[in-house]
Design a protein around this nucleic acid. Structure first.
Length: 463
RNA sequence: GAGGUUGUAGCUCAGUUGGUUAGAGCGUCGGUUUGUGGUUCCGAAGGUCGCGGGUUCGAGACCCGUCUUCCUCCCCA
């Protein structure tokens, strides 16, 4: 009985080299968060359905992976709901648990649940997989990792500044050639809606606005028309399409545009603060841009909205984030402001792969291989091998005394840096041969000098 | 969730209007007189042609369903 091996759609296996590369990204993100005082946490991969459902809008619920009840619980299935064609209700009767859809909502639950053991402002980072029942596409998977950092319990805008620096540090260290940090503020979007006299339809307006770079000015206008907005509203919004110039120019224009909206001006003030601080404490490689069409975001953002895109590749956003003032209120804790950022590690991975940004050194994970010539020789090698490990060099002894050609081939396939050869002759002479597998050079070394070679400058270095 | 697209050896792909025993390259494994890899040479293994049904004397080729792939929309990392 054999079965054709395959994996579920939207998921991937990772080969050793893939994991090594991804860990490289994770390590970089972890390091940045740690340096900025964030603490690590973890939450379960699945939560109670009630924790997740209804938190991501109507569309969101559809994309949540539900976990089917098992055993006796299956009898709870609400068949009458099925007959009434009330599928959501039927689904709820079949399932009490669901895979987490992001890290932010579980984090909000976590904060409320553990509020007595946390010190606020609480800064946490979390690197774990999330699942979405989305249709897979380029750069979109059903299982992918998010790397989130959030601060709760402080409404200071310095956190927004801090998060921009974290993004910049990570992407700069990963050697991305360039990237833009687009920022906006939900309050500005609210102001725009207010100016249009459509305060209640802010989401509809901004969702259309967000598509500007995708479907163009005409497309947005058409979509607004289709949604039933008046000519007057559309006329008011149109000038925003051609908003140009640098950050200050745009702020200047928006100051006039939003003059009669107090909430809009408030949002603008927040952006100005962030921008000022970034000018004062500049980023390394990131370019900050004010983008009023940026409306991404889960329904819960209330202040700053952030999205990062890499230059030179066709790929959706690689980081997103923003401020949400009342997320924990959903779980009964009011008045706790949060702000956070999320790295899309899998997309960053894909970009680094296409732009070939991974360091060459990641390919070689074994520094030294000792060839196996039999038990007597191997005893000596084993001792040397253990000493090398203590010095931090990854090394191993070939497990069996097979043809040298085969052992060499193994070393080659493993991309080993050095092969140590100790056969009968060497054993009798008290020497050992060390072969550099990159350039093919081989030299004889006194056995007693072997380990010290790995202290000296000419020795191979782990990178 | 809507529309389109794809599926042949481990990988990349051939396969003529339906017609014997489905091919190639790469990779894998073995050998090339067991002390030297990445470049030679010889040989071998490996496929119920995504899966299920149908049309036909006959299907890898045609039809239906299903899953998968990639793309557009929706939405998002």
């Amino acid at each position: 009985m054999s079965q054709k091996p395959s994996i579920s759609k939207g998921t991937r296996d990772l080969l050793p080299s893939d994991v090594i590369k991804r860990n490289y990204i994770f390590d970089c993100i972890r390091k940045a968060f740690r340096l900025h005082g964030f603490l690590p946490i973890e939450t379960p991969s699945f939560e109670l359905s009630s924790t997740l459902m209804g938190k991501y809008g109507e569309e969101g619920d559809r994309l949540i992976f539900r976990i089917l009840n098992s055993g006796e619980k299956m009898k709870k299935a609400d068949l009458s709901a099925l007959q009434e064609n009330n599928l959501p209700k039927f689904a709820n009767s079949l399932s009490e648990k669901a895979l987490r859809y992001d890290l932010t909502v579980p984090f909000a639950r976590f904060v409320v649940q553990h509020q007595n053991s946390l010190t606020f402002p609480f800064k946490r980072y979390q690197i774990q997989p999330v699942w979405r029942a989305d249709r897979p596409q380029h750069g979109r998977y059903q299982e992918f990792f998010q790397c989130d950092g959030d601060v709760v319990g402080s409404d200071s805008l310095w956190h927004e500044v801090d998060l921009l620096h974290i993004v910049d540090e990570v992407l700069t260290e990963l050697n991305l050639p360039g990237f833009t940090l687009k920022i906006n503020n939900r309050k500005i979007l609210a102001g725009i809606a207010e100016i249009c006299g459509e305060t209640n339809r802010i989401v509809e307006i901004t969702v259309s606005l967000d598509k500007l770079d995708k479907i163009g000015e005409e497309g947005v206008v058409q979509e607004l028309k289709d949604k039933g907005f008046s000519e007057g509203t559309i006329e008011k919004i149109t000038p925003l399409f051609s908003l140009q110039g640098d950050f200050d120019d745009r702020v200047g224009y928006l100051t006039r545009f939003l003059a009669s909206s107090s909430v809009g001006l408030e949002g603008l003030e927040e952006l100005k603060f962030i921008h000022e601080k970034i000018k004062q404490f500049p980023l390394q490689k990131g370019e900050v841009m004010l983008d009023v069409t940026l409306a991404r975001g889960l329904n819960y953002y209330t202040g700053a909205i952030l999205e990062v895109s890499a230059h030179g590749v066709q790929m959706g956003s690689i980081c997103g984030g923003g401020r949400y003032d009342d997320l924990t209120a959903l779980f009964g804790l009011k008045g706790l402001s949060g702000v956070g950022v999320s790295f899309g590690a899998d997309r960053i991975y894909d970009i680094m792969e296409t732009l070939q940004l991974f360091p060459e050194a990641l390919n070689s994970d074994l520094d030294v291989l000792f060839l196996n010539f039999g038990e007597k020789e191997t005893d000596v090698c084993q001792s040397l091998c253990m000493q090398l490990r203590k010095l931090g060099f990854s090394s191993e002894v070939y497990p069996s005394n097979v043809k040298i050609q085969k052992q060499m081939k193994y070393a080659n396939d493993r991309k080993v840096k050095w092969v140590a050869i100790l056969g009968e002759d060497e054993l009798n002479n008290g020497t050992i041969a060390l072969r550099n597998m990159v350039d093919g050079n081989q030299e004889m070394i006194e056995l007693s000098q072997f380990i010290s070679r790995f202290h000296s400058d000419s020795a191979p270095k782990t990178q």
